[in-house]
Lab assay of single mutants.
Amino acid sequence: MTFKLIINGKTLKGETTTEAVDAATAEKVFKQYFNDNGIDGEWTYDDATKTFTITE
């Protein structure tokens, strides 16, 4: 399955996707992406659209 990440950061904005077997696996991938890029904020997940959103 394809999961999308929408980034609404102070310095970084955009979208990316990842292929994962489930939302929990995608969450781990995206959290690592947050850490690697110094993004910290509030994030949500919409199961209907398989979209994670992080807002700094």
Rank of each mutant, 00 (worst) to 15 (best):
M1T: 12
M1S: 10
M1H: 11
M1A: 08
M1Q: 09
M1L: 11
M1W: 12
T2V: 13
T2F: 09
T2P: 04
T2Y: 08
T2R: 13
T2S: 08
T2E: 07
T2K: 11
T2M: 10
F3A: 03
F3H: 03
F3N: 02
F3R: 02
F3S: 02
F3C: 05
K4C: 09
K4I: 13
K4D: 03
K4W: 10
L5P: 02
L5T: 03
L5K: 01
L5H: 01
L5N: 01
L5C: 15
I6Q: 03
I6D: 01
I6L: 05
I7D: 01
I7A: 02
I7V: 09
I7P: 00
I7W: 10
I7T: 03
I7R: 01
I7F: 13
N8Y: 12
N8I: 14
N8C: 14
N8W: 12
N8E: 09
G9R: 05
G9V: 15
G9K: 09
G9C: 15
G9H: 08
G9M: 15
G9N: 05
K10T: 11
K10E: 07
K10C: 14
K10L: 13
K10G: 09
K10Y: 10
K10Q: 10
T11S: 09
T11Q: 09
T11I: 11
T11M: 08
T11V: 11
L12T: 10
L12W: 14
L12G: 10
L12P: 02
L12F: 14
L12D: 06
L12S: 08
L12I: 12
K13L: 06
K13R: 11
K13S: 11
K13H: 08
G14H: 13
G14N: 07
G14F: 15
G14W: 15
G14T: 15
G14I: 15
G14Y: 15
E15Q: 10
E15H: 09
E15S: 09
E15R: 06
T16S: 08
T16E: 06
T16M: 15
T16F: 15
T16L: 15
T16R: 14
T17N: 04
T17F: 14
T17I: 10
T17L: 06
T17R: 07
T17M: 07
T17A: 08
T18Y: 13
T18E: 03
T18F: 14
T18W: 11
T18R: 04
T18I: 15
T18A: 07
E19N: 12
E19I: 14
E19K: 12
E19V: 15
E19Y: 14
E19P: 03
A20Y: 02
A20M: 02
A20E: 03
A20P: 01
A20V: 03
A20C: 07
V21F: 10
V21L: 10
V21E: 07
V21S: 10
V21G: 06
V21K: 12
V21Y: 09
V21W: 11
V21A: 12
D22V: 01
D22Y: 02
D22K: 01
D22H: 02
D22Q: 01
D22G: 01
D22F: 02
A23D: 02
A23H: 07
A23M: 09
A23K: 13
A24N: 07
A24S: 08
A24C: 11
A24W: 06
A24H: 08
A24G: 06
T25R: 06
T25H: 14
T25A: 14
T25K: 04
T25G: 07
T25Q: 12
T25F: 07
T25P: 00
T25S: 11
T25L: 04
A26R: 01
A26H: 00
A26I: 03
A26M: 02
A26G: 01
A26F: 02
A26Y: 01
E27S: 06
E27Q: 08
E27L: 15
E27A: 09
E27Y: 15
E27V: 04
E27D: 03
E27W: 14
E27G: 07
E27T: 03
K28M: 10
K28Y: 08
K28G: 06
K28R: 12
K28I: 10
V29P: 00
V29T: 08
V29E: 06
V29W: 14
V29K: 09
V29C: 09
F30L: 04
F30G: 00
F30N: 01
F30I: 05
F30E: 00
F30P: 00
K31L: 09
K31H: 06
K31V: 10
K31R: 14
K31Y: 05
K31F: 06
Q32S: 12
Q32G: 07
Q32I: 06
Q32E: 10
Q32N: 07
Y33I: 11
Y33N: 03
Y33A: 05
Y33T: 04
Y33V: 06
Y33R: 07
Y33H: 06
Y33W: 15
F34Q: 15
F34N: 13
F34G: 14
F34V: 15
F34D: 01
F34H: 04
F34K: 10
N35M: 14
N35C: 12
N35T: 12
N35G: 12
N35H: 13
N35F: 13
N35E: 14
D36M: 11
D36S: 12
D36L: 12
D36N: 10
D36F: 12
D36C: 10
D36V: 10
N37S: 11
N37W: 15
N37Y: 15
N37F: 15
N37R: 14
N37K: 14
N37P: 05
N37H: 14
N37E: 09
N37C: 15
N37A: 13
N37T: 13
G38E: 13
G38Y: 12
G38H: 12
G38N: 11
G38P: 11
G38D: 09
G38M: 11
G38F: 14
I39C: 10
I39T: 05
I39Y: 08
D40P: 07
D40Y: 14
D40V: 14
D40Q: 14
D40S: 13
G41Q: 05
G41H: 09
G41L: 08
G41N: 06
G41R: 04
E42L: 13
E42Q: 10
E42W: 10
E42G: 05
E42T: 12
E42S: 08
E42P: 05
W43A: 02
W43Y: 05
W43C: 06
W43I: 08
W43Q: 01
T44K: 08
T44V: 09
T44W: 08
T44Y: 09
T44D: 07
T44N: 06
T44C: 09
T44L: 07
T44H: 10
T44R: 06
Y45K: 00
Y45W: 02
Y45A: 00
Y45D: 00
Y45F: 05
Y45T: 00
Y45P: 00
D46V: 03
D46P: 00
D46S: 05
D47K: 05
D47S: 13
D47V: 08
D47G: 05
D47R: 05
D47C: 04
A48N: 10
A48K: 08
A48Y: 09
A48Q: 10
A48H: 08
T49W: 03
T49H: 04
T49L: 06
T49M: 04
K50G: 04
K50S: 04
K50N: 06
K50H: 13
K50M: 09
K50Q: 09
T51S: 04
T51M: 02
T51Q: 02
T51N: 01
T51E: 03
T51F: 01
F52R: 00
F52K: 00
F52Q: 00
F52A: 00
F52C: 01
F52M: 01
F52G: 00
F52Y: 04
T53A: 04
T53P: 00
T53G: 01
T53L: 05
T53H: 05
T53M: 11
T53C: 06
T53R: 04
T53I: 07
I54C: 06
I54P: 01
I54K: 02
I54M: 11
I54W: 15
T55A: 05
T55K: 04
T55G: 04
T55R: 04
E56A: 08
E56R: 03
E56Y: 12
E56F: 13
